[in-house]
Amino acid sequence: MFKAKLESAKEFKKVVDTMATLLDEICLQVNEEGVRAAAMDPSHVALLSLNIPRIAFEDYQADEHEIGIELEAFKKIMNRAKAKDKLILELDEERNRLNVIFENQGKRKFSLSLLDLSGATTKVPELEYHNVITIKGDALKEALKDADLISDHVIMRASPYEFKIEAKGDLNDFTAEFSSEDDAIISIEGEEEVKSAFNLEYLLDMVKGVSKGDIVKLYLGNDMPLKMEYSLAGCELMFLLAPRIEE
């Protein structure tokens, strides 16, 4: 069986929105410890991994199951979440459906037909990073939106004391600079200077669910994938984004 209750359907909507911008479908691996999932986008440029430990749920009961979900349909349902709605996710094994229930003044129940995605699990590569930037989510998001006016990609640079996002257009440039003294920065770790270039459309999709108060961790290397981590209402999201390189 699988039955799990989340305090805020609206908060979980942000998680589903973020998954749906990058992925078409995802296979949730549920067990007594919580819910996990990992998948690459169709072009294999980005990877998203989700971990919701059982402590993030108000109620949680689960045996081992793989629950394959079509994300566009799930997103449409989650868009109906209202403030103060609780969310119950419940596996109906007989009908092979995931019941998505909004609980508030009554119960509104959608039954989402499941996909057979068994065996489609994605392994997450273990990459080693020396530079880690912990930054306020809104500052990062605004800098990426600024850069989007200038170019379709950015260069991220990190040194022991500084983090920069640069965009170069044909005529105009943009640079966001954050030093370890700035309010936006929680910490900058790393002993060397590194830089990698990334596609902006993917970056903007990855920070879609981030709002004021969220803290984002960035792991950077030289022409290495960007690793990004943040939590939304106890749901831990991790992304990898492959770099663009000079040929």
């Binding site: 440029v45 596609n199 994938p225 492959a242 040929e247």
Partner: peptide, 11 residues
């Protein structure tokens, strides 16, 4: 010329 890599290169 810039080239977009895929994650497969890092597995």
């Amino acid at each position: 010329k810039k080239k977009q890599l895929t994650l497969d290169a890092f597995f």
